[in-house]
C-alpha cells in the first residue's frame, strides 16, 4: 500500500531559490528509503515538506491520506501525530530527563497516565536505553541522545519515521548503532522510514531503496541501491 505520494511538487523559497523541481515520488508502507544528494540537493526540503514545516509552492503531497500541502497551520498537529521525526541535532529538552523527554510526546497529545508509562518504557526498550531513564541529555553520548530522540519519535507508534541526517553528528560506530535501531524499528514494528543522509557507508551497507536528488531534481531511484558518485 502506498503511504506517501508526492505529485509534481515544486518548492521555491521566498528568497527566489528553487529547492525542488517537479518531483514525483511514491513510497510504500513498510519501506525503508534513503534520500541522498549533496548539499543543496533539496533532500532536507523534501523531508520538511513531508512534515509540513514547508509548504510546496506547486503540486500535491499526500501522507497517509492527508493532503499535506493544503493543511492549515492550526491543523498541522493532525499530521505530526501520525509521524515521528528525528533530526541531526536531536532536539531534546535539556531540563528534562530521558523518560520525561519521551513521555512528553504522549503527554502533549493527552494520553492516559498508565498508557504513557507503558509506551514510554517500551520505546526506550526498543532503542536500548531502559537503564538511563533518569539521566539528563547532557549526561549522555551523542548516540544515546539520538536514541532518546528516536524513542520520542516512535513512542506514539507512528506509521512513518522521518530522519533528517540522523547520523550527521555521530562517529561511524555510533552511526551504525543508530542504523541498527532504525532497521529493527522498520523490520519489527513495520514503520516506514525515510532518511535523508550523505553518509555513503551507511547507504552501501544497508542496501535499501535509494532516491537520488541533484539540484532539486530526481536523478535516480534504485531498489537495494548504493551510493554512486556519478549520480551526484
Amino acid at each position: 500500500m502506498e503511504l506517501i505520494h508526492i505529485k509534481d511538487v515544486t518548492k521555491e523559497y521566498k528568497n527566489g531559490v528553487t529547492a525542488v523541481y517537479d518531483l514525483n515520488l511514491r513510497i510504500k508502507k513498510g519501506d525503508f528509503a534513503f534520500i541522498i544528494g549533496g548539499s543543496g540537493s533539496g533532500k532536507s526540503t523534501v523531508i520538511k515538506m513531508l512534515y509540513r514545516e514547508e509548504k510546496p509552492t506547486r503540486g500535491e503531497i499526500v501522507v497517509g491520506g492527508l493532503n499535506v500541502a493544503k493543511l492549515r497551520n492550526g491543523k498541522v498537529y493532525k499530521l505530526r501525530r501520525k509521524l515521528g521525526i528525528v533530526f541531526q541535532d536531536y532536539r531534546l529538552l535539556p531540563k528534562s530527563t530521558v523518560y520525561e523527554n519521551v513521555a512528553f510526546a504522549l503527554e502533549v497529545i493527552g494520553a492516559k497516565s498508565d498508557e504513557i508509562q507503558r509506551k514510554t518504557l517500551k520505546a526506550l526498550e526498543v532503542v536500548g536505553l531502559k537503564g538511563k531513564l533518569r539521566n539528563y541529555p547532557d549526561q549522555l553520548s551523542g548516540g544515546e541522545q539520538q536514541r532518546v530522540a528516536i524513542a520520542r519519535a516512535i513512542v506514539n507508534e507512528p506509521k512513518l519515521l522521518l530522519c533528517d541526517e540522523p547520523t550527521g553528528n555521530l562517529d561511524p560506530d555510533m552511526s551504525m548503532e543508530i542504523m541498527k535501531v532504525l532497521e529493527s524499528i522498520n523490520e519489527d514494528l513495520g514503520t516506514t522510514i525515510i532518511m535523508a543522509t550523505h553518509d555513503q557507508n551507511i547507504v552501501n551497507k544497508l542496501k535499501k531503496r535509494v532516491i537520488v536528488l541533484k539540484d532539486g531534481r530526481l536523478v535516480g531511484d534504485y531498489e537495494k541501491g548504493t551510493y554512486v558518485h556519478e549520480d551526484i
Binding site: 512534515y51 497551520n73 492550526g74 498541522v76 498537529y77 493532525k78 505530526r80 501525530r81 521525526i85 532536539r91 531534546l92 529538552l93 512528553f104 510526546a105 502533549v108 497529545i109 493527552g110 520520542r152 506514539n156
Partner: peptide, 17 residues
C-alpha cells in the same frame, strides 16, 4: 522557543501549547 517547536513537532495542538 525550542520547547514550543518541539511541542509542535511531536503533535501538540496549538491550543495545548
Amino acid at each position: 522557543k525550542r520547547e514550543i517547536s518541539i511541542m509542535r513537532l511531536v503533535g501538540a495542538s496549538n491550543f495545548t501549547i
